[in-house]
Design a protein around this nucleic acid. Structure first.
Lengths: 383, 383
DNA sequence: GTGAAAGCGCTAACAT
DNA sequence: ATGTTAGCGCTTTCAC
């Protein structure tokens, strides 16, 4: 008659489907049918009786047992490089919102852009019965996950190009990173900038490589030679996720600005780096955009809030989340919805106040002038 | 001999402990013992043989079955108000890092500060066998979770004061929010500010109420009457998590600045609101800190990056994460480590450039002057 | 319309 | 040192 004890605390015993069946004078089958919405199989009175008992005891079926029996859980995982970067936070939010509509829960995992951690997570997820995962910003090769792919893991790889020999269980979803950067850099070129720097952490992910290529191609298309001196892809994001990203951006920007001839514009591979560059310019008492135009990528919430507001490339987060979730859930239910194996969504350049025309003021001579940021930013907003 | 088929894709069959046992010519017990580290029970040769088979077939035990059998999973959940707020992202990061050291995985859930969603998540977690959760920034009352608490849910409530009738399975962990705000406001008062505004979203969580009380008490201690006109706690964060937080901050700041007599300083209940206030001042062409001193709360990564860098109250994230995780894992293992039921960690005021002495310039007359932000911020850094 | 029973993959007590 | 076996809580076929 004793209740189980845990940590010295008396705890209510778990109520199982059998208990409910007994107390409602029905078989477990009936309870199971009710719980799973197969209502056609029972009389209304039976149903009511069982429902009452369930409510009285707050019965909720054990997911592990269900999983064990059916081999499926209504859980979907999202593996992101870093929840500390608001961009991924926002994506998580959208994915979760969408999944919830289908009765799925979302498990968010932090890969830190480390393939080893990816495997570790996917393995844990697999063991837990999760068969559907959205993998964000992974390295291009999926070899480390091949094992699970072969076993039936459904994968939506975000920000990674489809490869010819991809298993059919992986579909690729991405923003057109190349085009996004191309647009961003083109914007800078149109403003008259020629010395345009590229700022990023290590180009390990496909997304970043694409962004770099977009930069290079835009420069080439305008006939501007990309001096390697204007490209910075150093540091390591390991250790503290993208929290260190800003610091990296700051460092990189400091380095780039020190180069001669000095760049007049800077394109950052994501907004966090761009914001890091903001800090660098502030330290050097340079004004944005007067002394240095800056474009970011992602359009995180803080881009609009920055001072001056950051010109950046927006990712259509909601569309991305929806595509990923419906794809995954669609195949999980065996629906033939899965009509695509690769999807690319378009970027959008959001013009704000961190960019302006080049050349009116030589940076070399004005470097230590107290700049007039507010004037610069508001004049732009007025367009 | 057919392999299972899923979505038209031929999939490797799952290999179970029984398969391994058979192929290694041992019993399932031996495999189980090996997998669970009970190595003393077998000869080295047996062990090697089994290990080889396991490796060959990439066997990994089914977590659902383990869970079903043992009643435990090495998963710990973290329920936060909003992963889109970098503060919670950073906390997740620390919690995960710490939990991983104990072989635990972390499931991050978004409550959106909605008790209904909290229950929904805790219920799903419970069903999935998760018995340990860190609940962040919840409403003070835990009634909605009572059901699970009675059943043995281990809860660490972050940012919530311990209540006299809390069940013993909930422990409370928080930063001293009252003291944090008190320090922040005191700092402002020391700088000569008297018209200090308070900016926050709805005061639903314990943390926010504490922060408000800290503000009020600091003002009272300095003999300054808190005109209710300087307090703004409007809006609703529902709908898009703290992504909307910045917008809320902007709106609130706009409202507060319009009040007469105008506040000369503003204390925001979190950094996101503070950054929203930055946007508001920019729109009104007011300079920080010249026309308005601002203090935030949390010290998110972007506080340091803001222009000017934001004075704010830092939470010792790492200590918080460690306390929560060790507490939870400690009791899960039945260790008598659980020597505390309530713990409060101290805040730290981080002085940056968003605050300066009051009174030297009447805001009313200078409201539309082009401000010199850079000068203000760098002069401060030099201290 | 309802029930009995097999078994999902694993662990652990109890043999041997 | 290794093997046998009884369930954990649930779903689902098949019988009634």
């Amino acid at each position: 008659m004793d209740h189980p004890v845990q940590g010295g605390v008396r705890v209510q015993p778990t109520v199982t489907i059998r208990d409910i069946a007994r107390m409602a004078n029905v078989s477990v089958t009936t309870v199971s049918n009710l719980v799973n919405g197969r209502l056609g199989h029972m009389r209304a009175t039976t149903r009511r009786r069982v429902e009452q008992v369930i409510a009285k005891y707050d019965f909720c079926p054990n997911a592990a047992a269900q999983m064990l029996r059916t081999g499926r859980t209504r859980v979907l995982a999202l593996v992101v490089p870093s929840v500390a970067n608001p961009f991924w936070g926002a994506l998580s939010w959208h994915v979760e919102r969408c999944a919830l509509q289908y009765g799925y829960h979302v498990m968010v995992c932090n890969s830190e852009r480390d393939p080893a951690r990816e495997v570790q997570y996917v393995s844990a997820l697999w063991r837990a019965g999760v068969r559907d995962v959205v993998l964000a910003a992974s390295e291009p090769a999926l070899d480390h996950l091949r094992k699970f792919l072969n076993r039936g893991l459904n994968l939506v790889a975000f920000d990674r190009r489809a490869e010819p020999d991809d298993p059919p269980s992986v579909v690729s979803l991405s923003m057109d990173n190349h085009r996004g950067s191309f647009m961003a850099v083109q914007h800078l070129l149109t403003l008259g900038h020629r010395r345009v720097a590229f700022l990023s952490g290590p180009l390990r992910t496909a997304a970043r490589m694409e962004r770099f290529r977009g930069y290079r191609d835009a420069m080439a298309a305008a006939g501007v030679d990309v001096a390697s001196a204007w490209v910075w892809t150093g540091g390591s994001t390991k250790g503290a996720g993208d929290a260190k990203g800003a610091e990296l951006g700051r460092l990189g920007a400091l380095t780039l600005i020190a180069r001669r001839p000095r760049p007049t514009a800077l394109f950052a591979a994501n907004d966090i780096y761009a914001l890091g560059a903001y800090a660098a310019t502030r330290e050097l008492r340079l004004a944005i955009p007067r002394d240095l135009s800056i474009v970011g990528f992602d359009d995180i919430i803080l881009a609009r809030l920055a001072n001056p507001p950051l010109t950046t490339v927006r990712q259509p987060l909601r569309a991305i989340a929806e595509a990923a979730v419906t794809q995954l859930i669609g195949r999980a239910q065996g629906l033939p919805d899965a009509t695509w194996v690769s999807r690319v969504v378009p970027p959008r350049l959001v013009l704000r106040a961190s960019t302006s025309a080049a050349g009116r003021n030589g940076m070399s001579s004005r470097a230590f002038t107290i700049p007039d940021q507010i004037g610069a930013s508001t004049s732009r907003r007025r367009r």
